[in-house]
């Protein structure tokens, strides 16, 4: 299944430092008026599972095809897995959902 849905992790100084330490600073892309993010990709199936688990989150189907409004601690956890795996692919979300 194509992993064409994104989860934006917005980068503040603290997260940027962690990316640099892991040699992943290049993963941060500037997308919105100077705002930097890394985008973790997930599949349709993973998206449904995440929305079920976190009902306050929203999938923006029309504009960005991203899952938004995930709680901060969830984003922190996903970010840590991305750093550990040095990846932004669907395997990050796979591990997150397993946990």
């Amino acid at each position: 299944m194509a992993a064409d849905i994104g989860i934006n992790i917005w980068i503040n100084e603290e997260r940027y430092e962690k990316l640099k330490e892991a040699g992943l600073a290049d993963m941060a892309e500037e997308v919105l008026a100077g705002m930097k993010r890394i985008q973790i990709k997930c599949t349709e199936e993973q998206k449904d599972e995440i929305l079920k688990k976190y009902p306050s989150a929203k999938f923006d189907a029309s504009t960005t095809r991203t899952i938004e409004l995930l709680p901060r601690d969830v984003k922190d956890k996903i970010f840590e897995i991305a750093i550990a795996k040095k990846s932004t692919g669907p395997e990050v979300i796979e591990e997150f959902l397993k946990g």
Binding site: N8, W10, N12, M35, K58, D60, E68, L69, R72, K75
Partner: peptide, 14 residues
């Protein structure tokens, strides 16, 4: 929604 997401991440938007 996107900006709410940024604030929720604890990041100050530009």
């Amino acid at each position: 929604t996107l900006i709410r997401s940024i604030i929720m991440d604890g990041v100050k938007p530009t």
